[in-house]
Nucleic acid binder design. Structure first.
Lengths: 340, 340
DNA sequence: CTGAAAGCGCTTACAG
DNA sequence: CTGAAAGCGCTTACAG
């Protein structure tokens, strides 16, 4: 594999001149530039990434830490990963992927050995044990998900509280008075999945303020349990007229559950979920939903991260905490409550 | 960030001694080893990956090229990625992920700039335009999926032909005489997704040999089209008693289609798919299926790749082409044809 | 058992 | 506009 030394020799210039001709960091005579470019083409030269990283302290690689936890729904994670990966590439960065269960050691390895210029953390928990490590790292970090303590990192998340309020409010205006909310499994909360209770508490509060009964329950993240649980919930609350779903597995299971019970949305039951449009298409979900915008969040996180990496944001400029406003995608599954 | 020079200084030895004490590549007095280890701990030293790569020509990174094509079902891809990523980590390698649509340029970038020690290609087509680039690269490559030309790379794939035969044979023995096979979309074939016709041709041949009627059709990779197509197929072939599904989107859509038609498997219709157990769980699919073993294939590919990278397989030792035998996972959706 | 030195392939001040 | 040289942080023959 050709080195810049060979390029220089073939072009009849010094290595530094060859380097500058390629980087454009100082002016080069047209003749020399052409000779260097010809030599590059002739030799099929590509700079060695490791050598360049050593010389510049820049790897042009972003570390992406995803975790596939037992109690979360894997296909939903994929959307975030692709949002991050595609945006990184557009900005000239590659992705070093860490999927291991022990995110701490992956993070430590990537940052302390300088394999990456920055880190994106997915699936951030309220008390995320990766955060102390990230804060000690010299590389900047961007999170998708809201931790309890946001110092030292840029944070991006859906406004789950507003999402909870929007769901309740929307159904209230149509005349609903008794609703069921199915959240993620309880372990997700125990592990610190703050978004679960952020949405749930806001929904409960909104319901309380307008005198609506809201049955808030946890659902499993797996089939067929979650299907059974949905059935049990509908049995337990026969007068409920609206179903709020903050649980991807439950959303995916709902069509067959409703089918089996002979229920149609919105004629018999209004349904509103919280998931991405891509997810809705994949699982053919006909329910209106709060768009969770994984691609957009991934994109925002990478954009801000790259701004920090490249010094467009000073190291002591304050970090951002940005919430994406929930947007309701209408798929026609919300209507007035049925007359009884 | 500490360098090995600082470690050496703190330990009171030369840099080479510090390096050898850490690598264990030559014998070191117990005293010196302890001093070096103490210094490492005190300084929180981690070797700089770029510098090490430059010195050793080894990055301990594997490039993973995945593509998320319009006509393929994304959640199925994720399984392969995780199989590769997790196995790589177990063997001490990190994953550089390329998800861009232009796999050629990603491949070129990773290999020619020496960011990786080897490459895993997912989703390999019959005539895969990434292969010429991979063959020119100095790094070894392992594929999941069978290309027309296997020279110069290690290849791993499900034995789709045997899978087609097993599906037909299984139903034949139970007395079925008319079957429907739903394959991936036609574009997948046109693009060179050889597995589609490998399974289909073998199934057609097996059916022909035993005098069974097999209606082989392509299905869409998206909802709700594929649901409509399934309905149309069942309408068109009312006397078919078995359904073979080599199309993840169709499999995911089938429960609600059968439900809507009031059909149960296997009482009214025997169903057998081709997808992974993990996929079955995610989508709550109650159908017996040929296990597509994405984690196992990913694991095999990485294992062999690492053997090549680390020189356990000589550069001129022949490459392997290994097929995983289809295994039928019985979920109770196959039975005798209904009496009419 | 240990050290001084060369080298991996770049970039970038320094000098002209 | 161009070149010679130092340096990034490692590893590893070479010498003792």
């Amino acid at each position: 594999m050709a080195t810049i030394g060979e390029v220089a020799r073939v072009a009849g210039v010094s290595r530094s001149t060859a380097s500058y001709a390629l980087s454009g960091k100082r002016s080069i005579s047209a003749d020399v530039r052409r000779r260097v470019e010809d030599a590059v083409r002739e030799l099929g030269y590509t700079p060695n990434a490791g050598a360049r990283a050593l010389a510049t302290s820049q790897t042009r690689v972003i570390g992406l830490l995803a975790q596939f936890l037992e109690d979360e729904f894997a296909p939903a994670m994929l959307q975030y990963m692709l949002g991050v990966s595609n945006t990184a590439r557009e900005l000239g960065y590659d992705i070093l992927l860490g999927t291991e269960a022990d995110g701490r050691s992956a993070l430590r390895r990537m940052t302390s050995s300088r394999m990456v210029d920055g880190i994106v953390l997915l699936n951030v928990a309220e008390q995320d044990d990766r955060l102390p490590i990230l804060r000690e790292a010299i590389q900047p970090g961007a999170l998708v998900g809201l931790p309890g303590d946001c110092t030292g990192v840029d944070v991006f998340d859906l406004d789950f509280e507003e999402a909870g309020r929007v769901m309740v409010e929307h159904l209230r205006r149509l005349g609903h008075r008794e609703l069921i909310l199915v959240s993620q499994p309880q372990h997700v909360i125990e592990r610190g999945g703050a978004y679960v209770w952020r949405l749930q508490n806001a929904a409960l509060e909104a319901a309380r303020l307008s005198g609506i009964t809201l049955h808030a329950e946890f659902g499993s993240s797996h089939q067929p349990e979650v299907g059974r649980e949905l059935n049990a919930l509908l049995d337990a609350h026969p007068s409920a007229t609206g179903l709020l779903i903050n649980n991807e597995a439950a959303a995916a299971a709902l069509p067959s559950v409703l089918h089996a019970r002979g229920l149609a949305a919105p004629a018999d039951l209004s349904v509103v979920g919280r998931y991405s449009d891509e997810f809705a298409r994949t699982f053919s979900l006909p329910y209106s939903s709060i768009e969770s915008a994984p691609d957009r969040l991934g994109r925002m996180a990478v954009r801000e991260l790259v701004r920090r990496i490249e010094g467009q944001v000073g190291p002591d400029e304050p970090h951002v905490v940005r919430f994406v406003s929930p947007e309701l995608v209408d798929r026609g599954s919300i209507g007035a409550p049925p007359e009884r």
